[in-house]
Design a protein around this nucleic acid. Structure first.
Lengths: 333, 333
DNA sequence: CTGAAAGCGCTTACAG
DNA sequence: CTGAAAGCGCTTACAG
């Protein structure tokens, strides 16, 4: 082979003595309707093999077939350390499933730019056949464009936006949160306080809904939490605190700090549970596992179904297995 | 905007009353030589903004500009657990640098397939502007094709293949290994045994070269290592063992096992050092750090230099900082 | 059964 | 200063 450019269909065509279009048809795996003389087929295939031909992915894509690339878009610089606990396992799940399905993965790095910047950034995902999105919030406009133009996307995490038209694979926080509070009730706790962060997102709403269903009273954190606040809750009869879990782990850290400052001991004076796993969580903290890895894998499979137009269920909520832990106990008294 | 397809240059052209080519020129940032009437420029820009135009990345690429995507090719299914210790930090370094340079990252998953399969797999990387490679061994033919066709690639890890024409960013194992043995000599060790695995690769050769330079005697492991072997080394006057470090950590595990079986205590009876960090390494094991993250970042910068045809040094070896640890001590006696 | 043509959306010489 | 043309490498109707 002459060093230089890789072989193209025209090269094969010239050598095999057929037209470039014929080469395309043979190599394309004989589309329905088109039938080749077996001898032609063989000849083309032989030459292609000889030349070490491989289709140019970009041209293939532009001519509107597939690239077998799926995107993963995160709205900030990827590998942000503060979301490592969720991002890594998701990435692993996505990678594994993508590899299993023969898809390459394109990591799109969101720019922190202005509106138009971000629209441009998001439109880049069109190189891929479809794209996974991951982030607490949705930039409605660019996502709406994608959805409107029927570009396949799947969100990792529940998304109620756009009138419920966004496909997603999320975690069933409502059930997991309600179950956790229910477990506390079984342990005799009657007054249960739920502490959540200020920032809102579907995952926060779902957790709150779950704990409310199970009868907990909600406090929204805006700033710190003095030890006195915890003491006064106890005074009101509160025997258990449940805290939200987010990437920052702020609620957990804050509450734990206030409990320590109040000189209370867990779980004797007070039970403590987390709606997830605190960052770097020791196994003794009671809570539940968020199935990040499975979410990533499932999201890939959903996306590929969407791309290949398989009939499928476009929205999934995955079960969060409970983590028993040792920070809850029977209600005192 | 009508939902449906995203705006293209023709759409802008029609509305602005200019030709599509003019739109391309204006949007392309006014190539050298071409000058536009300011009014035309403004009009085109305004319409483009209005329509929310963003160039179609695939078409852009096919028409031979850049995609701002760089590839990362690993020769096995990505995220293989056994190389996690090296793969993750490399990935983080690559991601960070790519994001900083405004490049998207395409993760190419190697197929375990046959020769031609792998050639096909490797040619996929051409979607990107350039590609990073990572793996102990080089599949010469496909890589040669890439290099011959002047497609920019950078290996993570030293690569002497193809007559030294492969750009790379590696670790300076020779120096780090020699230094480690030198440290043992300073502690009074005179007979030092180096135990390496059977598989060969540049990283293995470099480590071996380093320890040989510093006067260690080499044993190549093929199978297990009986406790007797270690005892007989001691009988010959050996007071320190240095082991190779690879992704599997096999040499370390094997040697450590043999030492334990021989009932020897570290570092009193025997000093032990590792040319790297054993998987899940406790900090007390003496060795050195492989700067994986920096290698990943540096590789990206090199690749982008190559892509943009900046003058640059195409081969780098990075320093490996020593880890003092506590498994070496003065030579007994 | 196979070829010629048009088109995917862009860039890049080359003419006016 | 701007337009018309060709081309990137492929796929997909549509003719023969």
């Amino acid at each position: 082979m002459p060093p230089g450019r890789p072989p193209r269909q025209v090269d094969i065509a010239r050598i095999a003595g057929v037209s470039q279009a014929t080469v395309s048809v043979v190599l394309g795996g004989n589309r329905a309707g088109v039938r080749m003389a077996e001898s032609t087929r063989r000849r083309v295939l032989a030459v292609a093999d000889d030349l070490g031909y491989v289709p140019h992915p970009v041209a293939t894509r532009l001519a509107s077939a597939r690239t077998n690339m799926i995107g993963l878009y995160t709205f900030r610089a990827t590998f942000p350390t503060e979301v490592a606990d969720s991002y890594y396992p998701i990435l692993v799940g996505v990678e594994d499933a993508a590899a299993a399905l023969g898809q390459d993965l394109v990591l799109f790095t969101g720019t922190a730019g202005e509106r138009t910047q971000s629209a441009a950034a998001i439109r880049r995902v069109r190189v891929a056949d479809g794209c996974l999105f991951f982030g607490r919030h949705v930039p409605d406009e660019p996502i709406a464009r994608l959805v409107d133009s029927r570009f396949p996307i799947v969100y990792i995490g529940r998304r109620p936006e756009l009138g419920g038209r966004i496909p997603y694979v999320g975690a069933d926080y409502v059930t997991a949160s309600a179950d956790l509070v229910a477990r506390l009730r079984e342990l005799g706790h009657r007054r249960i306080r739920y502490v959540r962060e200020a920032d809102d997102a579907p995952s926060s709403q779902d957790r709150e809904r779950g704990v409310r269903q199970a009868g907990a009273v909600v406090t929204r954190l805006t700033g710190g939490l003095p030890a006195d606040a915890v003491r006064s809750w106890l005074g009101e009869g509160v025997t258990a605190i449940v805290v939200e879990e987010t990437d920052t782990g702020a609620a957990y850290t804050t509450v734990r700090g206030a409990i320590d400052a109040a000189g209370l001991s867990i779980p004797d004076d007070l039970s403590l549970a987390v709606l997830g796993r605190p960052p770097g969580a020791a196994p003794e903290v009671t809570g539940f596992e968020v199935p990040y890895r499975a979410m990533g894998g499932q999201a890939v499979r959903l996306l590929v179904d969407l791309i290949t137009e398989q009939p499928t269920t476009p929205q999934h909520l995955l079960h969060c297995p409970p983590v028993p832990g040792a920070t809850i106990g029977p209600a005192p008294g």
